[in-house]
């Protein structure tokens, strides 16, 4: 069955088509949840909520862009909606450089380690870092998505970078001393 037909069947609540769509996109969408959530359990919950939203809204997909792109946006929005509700971070206004350089040995840094670092970030920093660095949204878009000022988004990103660099350096120092 073609993707278009599968999507149309999903809109009619066809369970078999829904299962096929799930298997096609579960990997990429769960990865988003692992990056945006602050632990694996929350990632699992967010993934379920996001997929249910996708199936509820799948009738609104107009076949103009890629379905995967649309599904990712729905998933991200579902997660953001959840965190936006309880986010109470203070705005940091200090001057922080735009670019953060770190000295790393690629061999020492694993993917799981980086994921843990992201998940360890304060909530807003994590969201902004994911949106800007990993998913390519602009500060203006992020400001709209998180209902914050554009300057706040920039500031959050800079703080996230500094924290991440500190964590990586601390980790590497620890590795050296072992």
């Amino acid at each position: 069955m073609s993707l278009q037909k599968l999507i149309k069947q999903c809109a009619k609540n066809d369970r078999q088509a829904q299962q096929e769509i799930y298997h096609l996109y579960a990997g990429s969408l769960f990865s988003i949840c692992l990056k945006y959530s602050n632990n694996k359990q929350e990632a699992q919950d967010n993934f379920q909520d996001g997929f249910i939203t996708i199936f509820k809204k799948i009738g609104q997909f107009d076949f103009r862009g890629s379905f995967e792109g649309w599904a990712k946006r729905v998933m991200i929005n579902t997660v953001l909606l959840k965190y936006r509700k309880k986010s109470v971070l203070n705005i940091v206004t200090e001057d922080i450089p735009d670019e953060v350089i770190v000295e790393v040995d690629d061999e020492e840094i694993s993917l799981d380690f980086l994921l843990d670092l992201i998940r360890g970030l304060p909530e807003r920093y994590r969201l902004v870092f994911n949106l800007y660095v990993l998913d390519g949204y602009s500060h203006r878009e992020i400001a709209g998505m998180l209902k914050i000022a554009e300057g706040t988004s920039k500031s959050n990103l800079a703080r996230a970078r500094v924290i991440l660099r500190q964590q990586i350096e601390r980790y590497q120092t620890g590795q050296q001393s072992i």
């Binding site: 953060v100 350089i101 770190v102 000295e103 790393v104 690629d106 840094i109 660095v133 660099r165």
Partner: peptide, 9 residues
């Protein structure tokens, strides 16, 4: 090696 932290991730 020195690396931009964004690129690393």
């Amino acid at each position: 090696e020195t690396k931009n932290i964004d690129r690393l991730f």
